[in-house]
Design a protein around this nucleic acid. Structure first.
Ligand code: MN
Ligand code: MN
Ligand code: ZN
Ligand code: ZN
Lengths: 137, 137
DNA sequence: ATCCTACGATAGACACTGTCTAAGTCAAGA
DNA sequence: TCTTGACTTAGACAGTGTCTATCGTAGGAT
């Protein structure tokens, strides 16, 4: 039983087979799947699940803060169940592999007030890029 | 005459009306247009310019390092002619306005070797998000 | 100045990503 | 068990980006 599923139940979500399967697919560390990848894996367990339901369910999980949307490439958004521990991402510029990383300090602190132009800055996303060990070999 | 156009000529680019117009549209500070926005503005000056040419030209400018691709919203990529001064982006989470910002220090330095997992890390992109003064009013 | 031709531009089909609607289904409380 | 409104579904549609076959022309050659 995934923690994610447990938290959804506590929020009063109706527990459908579709939502269970999406939550199961998202379970794990360093999981950063696109919506259509989630759909493909969900279909293995529940063949009749629709694309629309996967998109809807992911969107709901994001809106309640249980899943984070990550846009590391210009293509499809990726869905990250590791929403309760702040982290950033390290992406291989060749194969696209994504790792969670934890930089030192608060990235927000590096932006001085004079560079905020009156914005109320609330979040920061950092994407490190480079070549992973497998691709460098 | 834009600096961008001058540098393209120095690289031996064939100077077509289409490339001139794309370079002119990209001229300026805090310019972060999508490809289709570039196409719309280019069409005002050169009505028959095609979408494919705009996409091709932007892609070529990116590949030679004269323009930077920015993906701040998970939707269309944006094209930034300010490629010769390293900078990061501050995005309004309500209206989408983008400002160039210059954080203190090297953002790469915040990622310790123990968090690099053998990657040869070469670049970092930082996106700050918050509400701009106009949207806060 | 004119000619040649390789490089660039074009139209439009196609693929991928995401949204929406109308109709059918079912989880869970009464 | 019944009821109901929340949920799911298929598929149409929209936005973004890529590709190919064909046409046009910038710029060097003559
Ligand atoms: Mn992550
Ligand atoms: Mn910029
Ligand atoms: Zn790699
Ligand atoms: Zn704003």
């Amino acid at each position: 039983m995934s923690d994610l599923l447990e938290r959804l139940r506590e929020r009063g979500w109706r527990m459908t087979a579709q939502r269970r399967v999406v939550a199961e697919v998202l379970d794990g560390q360093h999981v950063h799947l696109t919506a259509d990848e989630v759909h493909a894996r969900a279909t293995e367990r529940l063949p009749e699940i629709s694309r629309a339901t996967v998109y809807n369910t992911l969107g709901e999980m994001v809106s309640i803060g249980e899943v984070i949307e990550v846009a590391t490439d210009g293509r499809a958004k990726r869905y990250d169940p590791n929403a309760h521990r702040p982290h950033q991402h390290l992406v291989c510029s060749r194969c696209g592999t994504i790792r969670d990383v934890h930089p030192q300090g608060d990235p927000l602190a590096a932006l001085p007030a004079s560079e905020r132009f009156g914005f109320a800055v609330s979040t920061v996303e950092v994407t490190y890029r480079g070549v992973c060990p497998d691709c460098a070999a």
